[in-house]
Write a protein that binds this DNA or RNA. Structure first.
Lengths: 149, 149
DNA sequence: TTTCCTGCAAAAGCTTTGCAAGTAC
DNA sequence: GTACTTGCAAAGCTTTTGCAGGAAA
């Protein structure tokens, strides 16, 4: 499948991260950043299938792995054994539902309040003491929906 | 298998949480709280097998599920699709290794510093705004080990 | 033209489930 | 005696892998 007219924007995003610009990667990336639903690989596979001819599950996994390595998306650990992906552009908290495994964003302004309250110097102290390199912090609120009414 | 001489301490822990006191649950619980390694179900299965005749994987999963429901342990989401269990007695942060999926505790005094800095009122605001009931907060430091040297 | 990516199919890993026998209370 | 738990085996779901053909640079 030869590429005809890739949006130059996407093309340069990939180039900057050392990724080849394939049809499949473009479609997957567009779908990923267009949602805040933190889809599973399976859900992405179906979402892409609705827009386009489709691509294989293997490619979905390979591509997501490549995106994560390149820093284009985050891999989130869900509570029910599957993984979810987040085309995050800003830091935010996640709410994880213990019943469904669903992940929702915590509204941005509240997320910020909480994240801003974390002292930076504590983090660098942790890096030093534990001999690790931090990529990011995930703050997850674990709980369940209150049934309305 | 009839129970002969259950440690009354454990027995009352289970009773308080509405759990029947079976041989298997006792062994599994003892193994779980004796480690800070955040074992997977598979690892617990092997650890129990070393001490005792053994129990089936199905029972490991059933029992861990029962413990979690009862609040006797935490189910942690690992980054590689498996789940890990934590017989936690105090709040602490976790470091998750993106390469191995391993989970390590962040030392208690640093964990406390960070957790104490999170304003309580922000959490209750989140509960109200999102219509959820929080069980706990997981603060996960995502990163990788720095090779020594 | 070289290197990397895709897609298929198969395998591997983790977790859940149905059901009969057994145990706690 | 009743209700819950265990263990086996099988199934279900998620993710990874090997490899041949194809596309990007």
């Amino acid at each position: 499948m030869t590429q005809q007219r890739p949006p130059s924007e996407l093309r340069s995003v990939f180039a900057r991260h050392g990724l080849r610009c394939t049809q499949q990667r473009q479609v997957l990336y567009e779908v990923l950043v267009s949602t805040d639903r933190h889809p599973t690989a399976e859900q992405l596979y179906r979402m892409v299938g609705e827009r386009d001819s489709g691509l294989s599950m293997a490619t979905v996994y390979n591509t997501l792995e490549a995106f994560c390595e390149a820093g284009l998306c985050l891999k989130l650990a869900a509570l029910n054994g599957s993984c979810r992906y987040d085309g995050a552009t800003h830091d935010h908290l996640h709410f994880k539902d213990v019943r469904t495994g669903e992940i929702r964003d915590v509204p941005e302004e509240i997320s910020e309040m909480l994240l801003d309250s974390i002292p930076r110097e504590v983090l660098s102290e942790i890096e030093k003491k534990m001999g690790i390199k931090l990529h990011r912090i995930d703050v997850d609120l674990i709980g369940e929906d209150i049934p309305p009414g």
